[in-house]
C-alpha cells in the first residue's frame, strides 16, 4: 500500500523509467562514433554549424510536442513555416514595412493558423487532429503560393539576415532563439497550470473535463503554440537563406514528429519531454551532418534516419514493457 512508496525523491528507477534515457544514450553513442569516424566532426565550428542547422526543425518540434502531448498532431507546421516566411519577406521587400512589424505580422499569421487548427479540433464536431492538420496544411500552402504567384522573394534588406545568420557572443543567433524557446517551453510545461492542463488532456481527457479544465481553451492554446513556433522557424529560415520561399518547409512536420517521438513523446498523448524533443532533433541533425562528412549519399542517409527512428523508439518501448 501507500506506506511502501519510496521515501526518496530521486532514485535510479525513476531515471530508468524516464523517456529521455534512450535518446540520450543514442545521442552520446552517435557523437562518439562519428568523432572516431571523421576528424572534422567534433570541432567547435562543425558543432555550431550542426546546431544552426538543427535549430529550425528543433523550434518547429517544440510546437509539435505540445500538439502530441494533448493527444493530437499538427500536420500544418511545414506550410506555416512557408507562409510566415513569405508574409514577413513580402512586407519587407514589396511594401517596405519596418522589419520588426514584418516579423510581428509573420508571427501573427502563425498564431492565427494555430488557432484555426485548434478550433477545428476542439469544436463541437471534434474534427480529428490528423484531418484538421491535413486540411490546414493544404490551405496554408495554397495561400503561400497564391500571394507570391509561386515565386520566391529575393533581395531582402541586409539587416534581416541577422536572425538566421548572425552571431551573439560567437553563438549562432538561431541557436540562441532555439535555447530560449526550449527554456520557456520547459518552464511552461513543468511549472504552470497551463502545462498541467496539457498533460491532463492528453493523459485522460475525461478526467480533465471533470476536474473543470477548459478543454477547448487548452487545446486551442496548444495548437497556437505550435503555429507560433512554426512561424518563428519560418522567419529564421527565410532570414538564413535570405529568400521568402513559398515552397519552404516541405515535410518539416514529419521531421518534427520524428524529433518529438524519438525524444519520448507518446503518440496517444499525455507523455512528452521537451528536452527529449531537443535530443531527438539533435540526433537527426547530427546523423545527417555526420553522414555528409563521411560522404554518404543522401539516398542512403534517408535509410539511415529511418532505421534510427525505428531503433530508438523500439528501445524505448522495450524498456518500458
Amino acid at each position: 500500500m501507500l506506506e511502501k512508496i519510496n521515501e526518496r525523491k530521486f532514485n535510479f528507477s525513476s531515471l530508468r523509467r524516464s523517456n529521455i534515457l534512450t535518446p540520450s544514450i543514442a545521442l552520446i553513442f552517435l557523437v562518439v562514433l562519428l568523432s572516431f569516424l571523421s576528424p572534422h566532426f567534433l570541432t567547435v565550428s562543425n558543432m555550431l554549424n550542426v546546431l544552426r542547422q538543427v535549430s529550425i526543425i528543433a523550434i518547429v518540434s517544440v510546437g509539435m510536442t505540445y500538439a502530441i502531448l494533448t493527444g493530437g498532431i499538427d500536420l500544418s507546421v511545414g506550410s506555416v513555416v512557408a507562409l510566415s516566411g513569405v508574409i514577413t519577406t513580402m512586407l519587407l521587400k514589396n511594401y517596405s514595412v519596418n522589419m520588426y512589424l514584418s516579423i510581428l505580422a509573420g508571427l501573427t499569421v502563425g498564431i492565427l493558423c494555430g488557432v484555426a487548427v485548434g478550433s477545428m479540433i476542439s469544436s463541437k464536431i471534434k474534427m480529428p487532429p490528423f484531418i484538421a492538420g491535413l486540411a490546414m496544411m493544404a490551405v496554408v500552402r495554397g495561400i503561400a503560393l497564391i500571394i507570391t504567384n509561386g515565386r520566391p522573394i529575393y533581395n531582402l534588406p541586409e539587416q534581416f539576415g541577422f536572425i538566421g545568420g548572425g552571431f551573439l557572443y560567437r553563438i549562432p543567433f538561431p541557436v540562441i532563439i532555439m535555447i530560449v524557446i526550449y527554456i520557456i517551453a520547459f518552464i511552461n510545461l513543468r511549472f504552470t497550470k497551463m502545462g498541467v492542463s496539457f498533460y491532463a488532456i492528453g493523459g485522460n481527457e475525461e478526467a480533465a473535463r471533470v476536474a473543470g479544465i477548459n478543454i477547448r481553451r487548452s487545446t486551442v492554446f496548444a495548437y497556437t503554440i505550435s503555429g507560433l513556433t512554426a512561424a518563428v522557424a519560418g522567419i529564421v529560415l527565410a532570414s538564413r537563406v535570405m529568400v521568402g520561399q513559398p515552397i519552404a518547409g516541405y515535410f518539416y512536420e514529419l521531421d518534427a514528429i520524428a524529433a518529438s517521438v524519438i525524444g519520448g513523446a507518446r503518440m496517444g498523448g499525455g507523455e512528452a519531454n521537451i528536452w527529449g524533443t531537443l535530443i531527438g532533433a539533435l540526433i537527426m541533425g547530427i546523423l545527417k551532418n555526420g553522414l555528409n562528412l563521411l560522404n554518404v549519399s543522401t539516398y542512403y542517409q534517408q535509410v539511415a534516419i529511418g532505421i534510427v527512428i525505428a531503433g530508438t523508439i523500439s528501445f524505448n518501448l522495450l524498456r518500458k514493457s
Binding site: 498541467v196 475525461e206 476536474a211 479544465i213
Partner: peptide, 16 residues
C-alpha cells in the same frame, strides 16, 4: 478520474 502521467499531488489539485 486520474491522469497517469502526473504525480499524486498534481492529481489531487488538478483543475484547482
Amino acid at each position: 478520474a486520474l491522469v497517469d502521467c502526473l504525480n499524486i499531488s498534481t492529481n489531487l489539485f488538478m483543475g484547482r
